[in-house]
Design a protein around this nucleic acid. Structure first.
Lengths: 351, 351
DNA sequence: TTGTAGGCGTTATCAT
DNA sequence: ATGATAACGCCTACAA
């Protein structure tokens, strides 16, 4: 193995000089720098990570904690993980993969051992049991998702309220007056899952502002439950022409059912999904959808941890907590169109 | 930070004794061990990873190199990555995530710096440019996939030949006599992608053994190309009743097209897919499918690297290369049934 | 069964 | 602008 000392000898300088050309923390005369750089490539020197971590008190590693048995859409998770890794590399950091089966002990372990300088948590739940460990140890961290109590922590997430509002705006602009929101199963709302509630609030608020009538219906996401949900919606508000779906399981059934019940999408009914683009493309018709920027999520998370790592190393001044909500985008595809002219807005006064 | 020395002091022993109870490389009297263990938990001691790596010449980290822009089915990749991570932990190792955009330099970097003790490569191509780097440095490694020249390397993969044979057996057992294999696009075979060729060979060989007639048709996987492929198959061999599909894109179209052309699955035609179970479940009818064990892939890969890491640490005796093919499973679902009685095996001698 | 001490390769603080 | 040199925390012969 080639060491710093080898390089120094080869270049005829002291090892500290070599160290300084590597770290750039000292100005070096051009000639010696060049000699050293040549020696480095000649010998094929690679700094030893362990020694660097030990002496420098930084491992240049951040831990990424990923959910194990995930209800999340896996490709999205993967995309974030990759974006985290690539971004980290740009800052000279590597990423350690931690699976959530280690629980709170996992973050404790990597932080306490100095294996990782900081931690990024994916799939953060409202009452996340890993947060106490983080707070107790003062571990630099960034959360992807927002817990009950985000105080003192950096949180990054999609702006779900904006997503809900975006759906309303699009449908309102197309002239729809009665909207239905097909959501997650009731239990998701009962446990006050952050993203679900925030989406719904954004949706309702904007609908009110724009004077639309809305219906919210939780849905299990099976074919049968979706059928029931749709039937109730149409019974309660026969004039409903705009559908917003935030429930991956319900999308397919909903499209079939609309067709089955004689409603053509998008001529008779418009559907906006809140889901990854990749998924939206899979249906026929392809869905107009609202999506959050996944790569950026990873990038911002990395930048947040790194900022906190630097702060901890510098002063130890507790950095402000941050709550970063990333604006979603709406992509128009084939499932939305202007609202049909109203033929029967209310029941016909027959006879 | 609590150090080994702190623990030693607290327990009234020397630091080497503490070190030895941790590593278990020396027998310690029960009383002192207990005193030390108590001190460890009392003080909340966690061994410093950097120091351990430096002194012990092992980082206890393995690098997992994942494809960046993947054509692979992402959930499968994720499942393997998770299984690698979990398995590694069981052996006291952590996993570093390396994205393939670093190219060969990535594996060089982590190995040369001692950041990782070994490497697992996913998505190995036939002529993989990362292999020279591995061989040159003698880095302990395991490949998931099989390259052109696997000599000196540990390779783990699905037994695709067995998968192909399994499909034949299942359809033959059901009485099908004429099979068609709907494969990947021509370019995949032209570049001699290992998995594609091996599947096809296994398929053909077994079909020959069992006296079945087979057709192989590459397919782009779009709706149009699948239509063309099916048309040609039925023109060439109207009596074809068994379909084997190894092309994720073609499955959906094929099912639609069979239906469209008046063939009910499975009554008139049977379809076996070679794909992840998760995918097979998504279609209607749910597909009989052949799948390889993904978790085991990750486990075996980890065990292979670890074995090589130990070997390298011990003697440096170049360990035998290994070629481990994991047996696939066939799960019967709704897309296969006994072959229909043959009504028109050949063209009618009309007039 | 336990202790002593040198060394692992870098960083960073003093000097010069 | 460059050199010595003491940490950093742990491992492991070598002693006792």
């Amino acid at each position: 193995m080639v060491t710093l000392a080898d390089v120094a000898r080869h270049a005829g300088v002291s090892s500290s000089t070599v160290s300084y050309v590597l770290s750039g923390k000292r100005s070096i005369s051009t000639p010696t720098r060049q000699r050293i750089e040549k020696a480095i490539t000649d010998l094929g020197y690679h700094p030893n990570a362990g020694a660097r971590a030990l002496a420098g008190k930084r491992s240049h590693i951040i831990a990424l904690v990923v959910p194990l048995h995930t209800e999340v859409y896996v490709p999205t998770m993967m995309e974030i993980a990759i974006s985290v890794t690539v971004t980290a590399r740009q800052y000279g950091y590597d990423v350690l993969l931690i699976t959530n089966d280690e629980g709170p002990e996992g973050v404790r372990r990597v932080a306490a051992s100095g294996l990782a300088d900081g931690v990024i948590l994916m799939d953060v739940r409202l009452d996340d049991d890993r947060l106490p460990a983080l707070r107790a140890q003062g571990t630099p961290a960034a959360l992807i998702g927002i817990p009950d109590d985000p105080s003192g922590l950096a949180c990054v997430d999609h702006d779900f309220a904006a997503a809900g509002a975006l759906c309303v705006d699009h449908l309102a602009d197309l002239g729809h007056r009665d909207l239905a929101f097909v959501g997650y199963p009731p239990r998701v709302y009962q446990r006050h899952a952050g993203y679900a509630e925030r989406t719904l609030n954004g949706f309702r608020r904007r609908a009110e502002q724009r004077g639309l009538r809305v219906l919210h219906r939780p849905c299990e996401g099976t074919y049968e439950s979706t059928a029931g949900t749709l039937a109730r919606i149409l019974a309660d508000r026969p004039g409903t022409t705009g559908f917003v779906v935030q429930n991956e399981g319900a999308v397919g059934p909903l499209l079939s059912l609309l067709r089955t019940t004689g409603r053509t999408v998008p001529e008779d009914a418009s559907v906006v999904a809140i889901c990854p683009d990749q998924l939206a493309e899979q249906y026929a018709p392809r869905l107009t959808a609202v999506t959050g920027p996944r790569k950026e999520l990873g990038q911002v998370a990395v930048e947040q941890v790194l900022a906190r790592i630097d702060a901890a190393a510098a002063g130890g001044a507790a950095p402000d907590d941050a709550l970063l909500l990333l604006a979603p985008d709406l992509v128009v595809r084939e499932s939305t169109a202007p609202a049909p002219r109203r033929v029967t807005t209310t029941e016909e006064p027959s006879t």
